[in-house]
Amino acid sequence: MNDNAQKGPGTPILSIRDLEVTIAEEPETRPILKGLQLDIPKGQTVALLGESGSGKTLAAYSVLGLLPAVASIAKGEILFQGKDLRRMSEGQLRTIRGNKIGMVYQEPSKSLNPLMAVGKQIGETLRLHKNLGRRAAREQVLSLMELVGIPDPRRRYRNLPHQLSGGVKQRVVIAMALACRPELILADEPTSALDTTVQAQIIDLLSRLIHDLRMSVFLISHDMGVVAALADRVAVLKGGIVVEDGPVKEVLKNPAHPYTAALLSGAVHSAKTHVATSVAQIEPTDAACPFARDCKWVTHICRMQTPKPILLAGTLPEQQRLVRCFLHMPKPTTTAKKS
């Protein structure tokens, strides 16, 4: 899959290769990400879609070098503009975080300092990374606040976070992420903490910014609606591996992996969701397909192993889809004839 990605237009801005992350849990370590592969081409929004506990937030923290103490990277590469972030020192990483990679987190009230005026917080990144003076930073902050649609920026500049509504706070967080004109935005559940009508506003803002600033975005979400609204490509994460990867229009409309299909049908509550039987015939092994337990198409081999990514034909390289499911395995006879 790396080879295919490389043939695309230019090097991806971010490329996660075979990433394994484990969590130390007495008495042993438990693998969470088991060889994650993901490319984010320049100017595209790629979503990592997964349910809670799938490890998607750990993937984001790995990129930023902010894994919690219990988690560690066992192997893999995280290439940002071709350079491995894992080989960088903490000092080098600091010049990247907030500067070349901007972050938008789920809960705006948790990512803002409650005791500092929001204008100053947005300006902090500019003063630190761009060495701007107080006045120059202030001017840029005001134009950023305007860019993200905060009404009356001059007045809001001096507000403390608690004086702002949830939606405005999230706009402040977005302004902070954009402040240094980063090469990549990492957005972890950017609208999950917001109410429906406010979520719609923030989605609209993000999609305008993505378009106008030609941003590259690593979007992490469990919400199919958010992914459908913002992403160009989507990678579906289940049990620490990407089970399906492709253009969002293809994957969401015509899912290839049974897990993606189940997610989609669950999302529309079609009532067809397969109810798992309480006892599986064979206990799935560690190498089993992560969806083997709940899959209605499950076969014997699914409980033993997961196939390598299978390429589904697409006319253009960017339309290519990958799926890790035996259902899409080419029939042995056809392969034999080809070779």
């Binding site: 719609a200 609209d204 609606g225 459908a228 969002v248």
Partner: peptide, 22 residues
């Protein structure tokens, strides 16, 4: 109703925006 995100990527432009917040 119009603020609900659709799961269909083709409908992404149809979002209705209500100004302000609760």
């Amino acid at each position: 109703m119009l603020s609900q995100l659709s799961h269909n990527p083709d409908l992404r432009t149809d979002l209705y925006l209500l100004p302000g917040e609760p």
